[in-house]
Every structure is written in C-alpha cells, then in structure tokens.
Design a protein around this nucleic acid. Structure first.
Length: 206
DNA sequence: CCTGCGATTTGCT
DNA sequence: GCAAATCGCAGGC
C-alpha cells in the first residue's frame, strides 16, 4: 500500500479506506472525534458507518477520567487505539475509542451507526427493533447489535474481530451539538454527527 | 408525537 | 449509599 502524500487525508490522519490504528488515535480527542464520522466499524463482520460520537477529555467533569486513575479508568490512561467498554446503568455496555498518547486520558463514545453489514444478525440480536433506523441509533443499542460486551474492554481496534476503516470516498458533513445524558459540563458542544442522518440517536442534533 | 419511570450493576465517596 | 455517557414501555395529547 503506497503511503499517501501530504494533502489528501491530512485532516483525517489516515488514507481513504485505511485501517485506523494507534497513529490515528494518538491525537487530540477533539480532532479524532469528528474524523470518525463516516468511518466504518465492524465487529466480527457485523456493523456499519459511524454517524454519531461524543468526545470526553481528561479535565472534563463529565468524563470518567476526571477522578483520575482507577481500576475502571486505567484503560483511558493507556495506549490509544483500544476499546474502553463500561457498563452504563447496570445494563448497557457502552463502547469508546481511547485517544491521545499513553498517560493522557481521553475517549470517544460511539453513539450511533448506520447499519450496512449483516443487518439480519443485528435484527435478531435487537429483538424488538422494528426498522433499520432503530438497530444502532444509541450507544447501548449498537453494542447489543454488534455483540460487544465488557469482555471487549481494552481490546485493540486495529485487529480482528474489530475492523475500523477510514471512509472510502466523500466524508459526510459534520455538525456539533451538546452531549447527551450527562449532568456535568452539559454546555460543551462535543457531540458530533453526520448532518441530516436519520440514523442518529435522540434527541436529534438539529 | 411527547413525557415519565423502572430495570440492574458497578464504582467511588 | 447513591448516581450513573441508557433503553423500552406505558400513558397522554
């Protein structure tokens, strides 16, 4: 694979279609988060296109890392390009991508996908979901659809069964809005989504 | 369409 | 002890 010249892909930190590894994630979480919109995420061959994420940084009252290094947060302080999966409300596994160099603590919460691959597998796992719009339009829903659990915490994202790829072609326009479901630092506009996508979670960022 | 509430477990005070 | 980066269902409009 030829390395791409400076210019194209410069804002993404990756060439079109390339697998995203530690170099992509070893940057400011505020640069990585919008660059993930339009990327493709598969787990064991099941998944789709990322249409919504949120950024969480070290000095961020809404981030788990705000309290410092603990048993739970040590993955966020570890090497970039790994999964940080935690249990939300005692029920849902939420998937994050660890960003910034080891020793820093930042992560991107994956909030919604546009399903593209193995849709019937996702539908069978999601049970009550009626339409494709409801399969992955929320952080707890997409982990259920992809079969991601706490067992995947600290996994590398550039190795099977994960497959995380830069967009092949054009990138969607990205819009920002306040983050969802938090009670601290609620005003920070660190939610990023694909403009106009019907696959984003609620409330709609419009 | 919208709002309200219970489920269920863990991590940190 | 309690709050939590959520979800699905019930009920009202």
């Amino acid at each position: 694979m030829p390395r791409r010249a400076v210019g194209e892909g410069a804002t993404t930190g990756s060439a079109p279609g390339a697998r995203l590894g530690a170099d992509f994630f070893s940057r400011s979480v505020h640069d990585v988060a919008p660059d993930l919109i339009g990327c493709r995420l598969l787990y064991d061959g099941v998944g789709g296109t990322i249409v919504e994420v949120e950024a969480y940084e070290r000095e961020d009252p809404a981030s788990h890392s705000f309290v410092g290094l603990t048993e739970r947060t040590k993955v966020m302080f570890g090497p970039p390009g790994r999964a940080y999966v935690y249990l939300s409300y005692g029920i849902h596994s939420l998937l994050n991508f660890v960003c910034e160099p080891e020793g820093d603590a930042a992560a991107v919460l994956i909030r919604a996908l546009e399903p593209t691959t193995e849709i019937e597998t996702m539908r069978s796992r999601r049970g009550k979901a009626r339409t494709d719009l409801e399969l992955c339009n929320g952080p707890g829903k997409l982990t259920e659809a992809l079969g991601i659990t706490l067992a995947q915490n600290a996994s590398r994202l550039d190795r099977a069964p994960f497959e995380l790829l830069a967009p092949d072609g054009e990138r969607p326009e990205v819009v920002t809005s306040p983050r969802v479901g938090i009670t601290k630092a609620v005003e920070r506009p660190w939610r990023f989504s694909a403009a106009g996508s019907p696959y984003v979670s609620r409330p709609r960022p419009d």
